[in-house]
Amino acid sequence: MAYMISILPALLAGTKMTLGVFALTLVGSIPLGMVLSVGLMHRDQPGEFWLKKWFFKCLKAIIEAYVWLFRGTPLLLQLIFVFYGLPLIGIVFDRFNAAIFAFVLNYAAYFAEIYRGGFGAVATGQFEAATVLNLTRWQTLRYVVIPQVLKIVLPSMGNEVINLVKDSSLVYVIGLGDLLRAGNIATARDVTLLPLALVGVIYLLMTLVLTFAQRRIEKSFAYFK
């Protein structure tokens, strides 16, 4: 017990770093993913000016390439590239900002695809009904489409959020002292697996809280059938 108390401050400091990466990644990647999904869903409109049509086609192609790149390469590689590679062309981040930058770009790509699937699952007849009711495009999105999309994507979003908690351990590669690194240091120093067992318990507690929050949020959307 005394040993557990002695290593707890280091583990809690690592937990603070893990939660910081987790929270800031969500704050940045969820809205960015939503914006990117709108670009992925763009369709040519009848009578649309050719220059505008060309612009949106190019924009959609760029977003698709971005999603392909960040979903097709390991997050660990992206972290290394951002922190060690970008300085070679004059773009320098400190360790924490490099981690947030890489995590936000990576998870925004996944969220964009999740939201795209959610938007695609909304029946087109609802857009037509909103037009008949004289709702603006923004009103249609806010009151009709987005609530349904959120209900559809919540399970997938929940899985990605839980993955994010575990993926945050990858920041060790650029020297950040997260929870897992703190446990590894204590294990190597004291030659015992107890620190890693405590790390596992802390991760399980964090995912338990997130799972409970996800279930509560899903229940709040239960009125959408």
Rank of each mutant, 00 (worst) to 15 (best):
residue 3 Y to E: 00
residue 3 Y to I: 02
residue 4 M to G: 13
residue 7 I to H: 05
residue 10 A to W: 14
residue 12 L to A: 10
residue 14 G to N: 11
residue 18 T to K: 15
residue 18 T to I: 14
residue 18 T to C: 11
residue 19 L to G: 01
residue 20 G to W: 00
residue 21 V to C: 08
residue 21 V to N: 03
residue 21 V to M: 08
residue 21 V to F: 03
residue 22 F to W: 02
residue 22 F to G: 02
residue 23 A to Q: 09
residue 25 T to Y: 07
residue 27 V to L: 11
residue 29 S to E: 07
residue 29 S to R: 07
residue 30 I to W: 01
residue 36 L to W: 02
residue 37 S to Q: 01
residue 37 S to C: 08
residue 38 V to R: 15
residue 45 Q to M: 13
residue 47 G to N: 09
residue 50 W to L: 12
residue 50 W to K: 08
residue 53 K to L: 01
residue 54 W to I: 00
residue 56 F to V: 00
residue 59 L to Y: 10
residue 64 E to N: 02
residue 64 E to A: 06
residue 65 A to P: 12
residue 67 V to M: 04
residue 69 L to H: 03
residue 70 F to H: 14
residue 70 F to N: 14
residue 72 G to W: 04
residue 78 Q to V: 03
residue 80 I to T: 14
residue 82 V to P: 13
residue 83 F to R: 02
residue 84 Y to F: 13
residue 85 G to A: 10
residue 87 P to G: 10
residue 88 L to T: 10
residue 88 L to N: 15
residue 89 I to L: 13
residue 89 I to C: 12
residue 90 G to W: 13
residue 98 A to N: 05
residue 99 A to I: 06
residue 100 I to D: 08
residue 101 F to A: 08
residue 102 A to G: 00
residue 103 F to D: 08
residue 104 V to A: 03
residue 105 L to K: 04
residue 106 N to R: 12
residue 106 N to D: 06
residue 107 Y to M: 02
residue 107 Y to H: 09
residue 111 F to T: 07
residue 115 Y to N: 02
residue 116 R to G: 08
residue 117 G to L: 08
residue 118 G to D: 08
residue 119 F to G: 05
residue 123 A to Q: 07
residue 124 T to G: 09
residue 125 G to W: 05
residue 128 E to F: 02
residue 129 A to Q: 01
residue 130 A to C: 02
residue 131 T to L: 04
residue 132 V to L: 01
residue 133 L to V: 00
residue 134 N to K: 04
residue 135 L to A: 06
residue 138 W to C: 01
residue 138 W to F: 05
residue 139 Q to P: 01
residue 140 T to P: 07
residue 142 R to C: 06
residue 144 V to C: 02
residue 145 V to S: 01
residue 145 V to R: 03
residue 146 I to K: 05
residue 146 I to P: 01
residue 153 V to Y: 11
residue 153 V to G: 06
residue 154 L to C: 03
residue 155 P to F: 01
residue 158 G to M: 05
residue 160 E to R: 15
residue 162 I to T: 10
residue 164 L to M: 08
residue 164 L to H: 04
residue 165 V to F: 10
residue 170 L to G: 05
residue 171 V to N: 06
residue 172 Y to K: 04
residue 174 I to A: 04
residue 175 G to N: 12
residue 175 G to H: 05
residue 176 L to D: 09
residue 177 G to L: 14
residue 177 G to Q: 15
residue 177 G to C: 09
residue 178 D to V: 14
residue 178 D to Y: 11
residue 179 L to G: 00
residue 180 L to W: 11
residue 182 A to H: 10
residue 183 G to H: 05
residue 186 A to G: 04
residue 187 T to Q: 01
residue 187 T to S: 11
residue 188 A to Q: 12
residue 189 R to D: 09
residue 190 D to V: 10
residue 191 V to G: 06
residue 191 V to I: 13
residue 193 L to I: 04
residue 195 P to L: 06
residue 197 A to G: 15
residue 198 L to P: 00
residue 199 V to E: 05
residue 201 V to L: 15
residue 204 L to C: 14
residue 204 L to S: 10
residue 207 T to P: 06
residue 209 V to G: 09
residue 210 L to Y: 10
residue 211 T to H: 13
residue 211 T to S: 15
residue 212 F to M: 15
residue 215 R to S: 10
residue 215 R to N: 14
residue 219 K to E: 13
residue 220 S to V: 13
residue 221 F to G: 11
residue 224 F to S: 15
residue 225 K to A: 15
residue 225 K to S: 15
residue 225 K to Y: 11
